[in-house]
């Protein structure tokens, strides 16, 4: 499906994400059908498409939480079908995800939600102790500074606005320190003025810290302004997969056209 030149791929041994003919079925419903794509280190990829096109499922495949019913998925070069639960967790630690609904624990302080990024490395005892007396405060404070809410370290998370909570979720991913950041509609639950800030923050952090970014979006303007490559999904299939400059209005119209 990829329309990128195959020669580039063969030069680099392992992609961050590599999907070959991936299908995901939920009962009779095919959420993804025969999807093949490669995402290289440092790319900024936008996933667009109408509701129910399979964007969230694709992101689920990319972070290892959705097992494909068919095809081959390689995350950081490892074939997920062959991984034990423990080995899969090792891979997942290298992939951070930001969600539309933030997926934070609302009644914990911000610092604990940010520290949750450490859980893949911390022991259970250390994690439990930190809930009483927060550990590695400097790392958490630095992460919050990076997302622009340094003063909220000990605030109760549910007291923050939507935009601030999304910043906390991004800080959690920064503490996790993954190779790639996935974002599932990160600005859909945030008021429009804050959306640009969040998108710019994500893009800048990925540039500065040299991380790969895959973000699903409803707002097309951010796909054009903040990403280099756009993948159009419709009914579980990849309709196009092109650098931003090559995506034409006609393609986008086909993507969102209501079927007669």
């Amino acid at each position: 499906m990829s329309t990128r030149a195959p020669g580039i791929h063969s030069a680099i041994p392992t992609a961050i994400f590599e999907l070959k003919g991936v299908t995901v079925r939920y009962g009779a419903l095919a959420a993804l059908q025969d999807v093949s794509l490669r995402i290289e280190a440092g790319e900024r990829v936008a996933l667009i498409g109408p509701s129910g096109a399979g964007k969230s499922t694709l992101l689920g495949v990319l972070n290892g939480s959705v097992a494909p019913t068919g095809g081959e998925v390689r995350l950081l070069g490892r074939d997920v079908a062959r991984l034990s639960a423990r080995a899969l967790r090792q891979v997942q630690r290298q992939i951070g995800t930001v969600y539309q609904q933030f997926n934070l624990t609302p009644n914990l302080s911000v610092i604990h939600n940010v520290n949750a990024g450490h859980l893949g490395r911390w022991s259970l005892a250390k994690a439990a102790f930190s809930l009483v007396i927060p550990l590695e405060r400097e790392t958490a404070a630095r992460a919050l500074e990076n997302v622009g809410i340094a003063d909220k370290l000990y605030e109760r998370t549910s007291h923050l606005s939507g935009g601030q909570q999304q910043r906390v979720a991004i800080a959690r991913v920064l503490v996790q320190d993954p190779v790639a950041i996935l974002a599932d509609e990160p600005i859909s639950s945030i008021d429009p003025e804050r959306s640009r800030e969040i998108m710019t923050l994500l893009r800048e952090l990925c540039d500065r810290l040299n991380k790969t970014l895959v973000v699903s979006l409803h707002a097309l303007e951010y796909a054009y302004s903040h990403c280099d490559r756009i993948i159009g999904l419709r009914e579980g299939r990849v309709l196009f997969d092109l650098p931003v400059g090559q995506v034409t209005p006609a393609m986008v119209e086909t993507l969102y056209r209501i079927r007669a």
């Binding site: 290892g64 939480s65 630690r93 997926n103 624990t105 939600n113 949750a116 439990a128």
Partner: peptide
């Protein structure tokens, strides 16, 4: 939702439940 986010980030089950 928070639990799933932590599990998806590679946190082991007990630790993910403790925080999420």
């Amino acid at each position: 939702d928070a639990l799933h986010a932590l599990l998806n980030g590679g946190a082991p089950p007990a630790r993910a439940m403790l925080y999420g």
